[in-house]
Write a protein that binds this DNA or RNA. Structure first.
Lengths: 395, 395
DNA sequence: AAAGTTTGTAAATTGATTAAACAAACTTAG
DNA sequence: CTAAGTTTGTTTAATCAATTTACAAACTTT
């Protein structure tokens, strides 16, 4: 049954609107909100007072007058609740506690290696427990737990397949919700990273952005119309497995010539081993060599940039985003990747979709995933008091 | 300024809802609408009566009773207005007049070849004038003109670039609106085709579909969340220019190894010429040969299917749509393309995004573009009385 | 000090929905 | 064939959130 319109819907819309203005333009007065929102002063006043009652907003004191009564300035109360966000890596767990503004207030890290599902799960629990115990007292307490995983999950928060973790069909969300009795949200690491950057990083002003996480493989998170696009069954974003060479080498996924076979950390290190003749080489080593001016190392990064560009051009031509955001481990190689990529895009992409395009490297770095995970939880928390309709159905 | 909620918004939402039920489930009674919508009988009654007053709905007579008073059945009045849709082809103009249901009531065709912008524009005007003159009397008259073009246009309806037509920076929308003084909507032929199939063809039940129009080149129309995705500046859908061979031949677009260099009509005919040794060959010729069992001709279609599949796999892995729709001229080769494509997808695409995927060939054929153009106009017409908010901003 | 501005609240009004009641029209059980 | 029950669609009163209008308080400027 489709949702209908009634007065409570109107109130939800307007309350969201007012809260959003307070969140994004604070400190701000009631009168100013009325002016920019188009609502009447009376309405804004009433809604703000309800928000104050529910501790999401508070008055900070009078502000500057511009020739009349001084306005009472309002602030969003970010500390009314806290969110736990976790970046579940292949060999590490990075957990953080943020307030409702997305400001990190506590962190906790652990490493793991070749451990069983149970052992990793135990460590996960330890991280969460620790952060929850450290959380300050607040009105709404811990509003949820968000987790970014190196693999794919379904809508019920089951980890379907995380090859590098050795996980298959693990009902992670259910397990954690049973344990902690608060909302748990699971999503792919690239998706959480995309949301993190969109919400708290360089992607704030982009409406359609593609986040490319370059690690062992290539994962992508696609944000369309300011919202994470999940696809029909929640498995969108596997652009790492688009073919850039139809008769290229076989990929374990079944396809040939997948992008990530050419433009991932794995591919880079492979080439370093065979071409530089170093047996055990890491990204750090290569970065160091490049920093020292080693031409072959720099050459390797430039070739990586070329391969990356091939896929990015396809994304630009196909999706016409306003932002391409490069994240993941290899975003650290920005210094050597940036220029070659921009140059290649200039040459290879169609001029029109390129016009309003921005190409950026992640600012949040390792924190993108964790912050995205928190953002999921915070958004979900607000959604319970906000508009939750599929409006497209009305058109 | 973001839209606020008020009583008129509530009414718009509910009126849209009621009208949609009447449009999609007619004949239907007031009581039934109340039951399935969740609105009260009183509300539905009042809204229906307003719809009747505005001639968008009418009563058709009493229906079957299930043990009580007989219900008064309602129908959508599709003939309350008409839309003009045009498929502006490289060598033809196909124009149609539809009612608000999208039913074609009049058609008009013309051909053109190597003519100036002015000459083609004159023919376009002739088509429109002819159809408008043939339109039956109706409450709302001609509600707009929609045009699908073989090129790209901006949001102001300027044809920026239509190479095969030889057009560049033609303010088509402005020219036509000045002439006819009704809303004119211009969009790419693949986009209109996608919308046509979504609205009136096989795509009705798909939420995320990618329409692949295979003609001289490859154009794609992407529908996400039941809405055409236009990208940041309206230039999305150029998936024909994603590279499937990074070191492949140069494409006029600047890229190398573009999909359409391998999987378009142009590529097919090229191969036919060199490999079959026929100097002047058309798609019709090849279809005829294949029908006669000519192995080389069939082989050509199978190779086309292979190349097509490479791109389709990337789309599936990246966007996880619920429908891939193959349209355009080469959709007629369904008989030889279908099986090889399905087989290749089975082998090369990731299993999870494939689960709920459907692959279909266009049913509307040549009419897809025209109907999509009409759909734009009709949607736009209803939008004036419907909800027009960017709801995602509330999250 | 007077005049004008700005902020925020209060009271009355508006309008769309809901809830409850009801009349009309119909079916079915006995 | 009648009484009982059902279903449809309208009417009436109540509700609720926004708007309009008015206003008091607090401040700046002349």
């Amino acid at each position: 049954m489709k949702p209908t319109g009634d007065l409570s819907l109107v109130k939800k819309i307007n309350k969201s609107l007012v809260l959003d203005y307070i969140r994004t333009q604070s400190p701000i007065s009631r009168a100013k909100i009325a002016e920019i929102s188009g609502l009447t002063k009376a309405t804004v006043s009433s809604l703000v007072n309800e928000l104050i009652e529910s501790h999401l907003t508070y008055e900070i004191g009078v502000g500057q007058s511009s020739g009349g009564r001084k306005p009472m300035m309002l602030l969003f109360n970010g500390t009314a609740g806290y969110a736990v966000g976790i970046d579940l890596g292949v060999h590490y767990i990075y957990a953080a506690l943020t307030d409702l503004n997305g400001t990190i207030v506590e962190e906790y890290r652990m490493s793991h290696r070749n451990e069983s599902v149970e052992q990793v799960f135990a460590k996960l629990m330890e991280c969460i427990r620790e952060l929850i115990s450290r959380a300050p007292e607040s009105t709404y307490g811990i509003v949820g737990i968000g987790i970014g995983i190196p693999g794919i999950s379904d809508e019920q928060g089951n980890v379907l397949f995380a090859p590098n973790l050795g996980w298959e069909h693990v009902p992670l969300q259910a397990m954690l919700e049973k344990e902690f009795d608060i909302p748990v949200i699971i999503d792919n690491e690239a998706n959480t990273g995309a949301v993190g950057e969109k919400q708290f990083g360089v992607g704030k002003s982009a409406s359609h952005l593609v986040y490319i996480s370059i690690g062992m493989g290539i994962g992508t998170g696609i944000i369309i119309n300011n919202e994470l696009y999940r696809g029909t069954t929640g498995f969108s974003g596997e652009l790492g497995h688009m073919s850039i060479q139809f008769d290229g080498p076989k990929c374990p996924c079944g396809n040939r010539g997948c992008w990530e076979l050419y433009a991932s950390e794995h591919a880079l290190l492979d080439r370093a081993r065979t071409e530089l003749g170093i047996a055990q080489v890491t990204v750090e080593d290569l970065l160091k060599l490049a920093e020292e001016g080693h031409p072959a190392a720099i050459g390797l990064f430039e070739r990586l940039a070329d391969y990356l560009s091939v896929g990015i051009v396809s994304i630009i031509n196909g999706l016409n985003p306003d932002l391409i955001l490069i994240g993941g481990r290899l975003a650290e190689a920005q210094k050597w990747l940036r220029e070659p990529i921009l140059k290649a895009l200039e040459q290879r992409s169609l001029p029109y979709p390129r016009e309003q395009l921005n190409v950026q490297f992640s600012e949040l770095g390792i924190r993108a995933t964790v912050l995205g995970a928190c953002s999921f939880v915070i958004t979900n928390f607000f959604a319970s008091t906000k508009v939750q309709l599929d409006w497209n159905r009305y058109v």
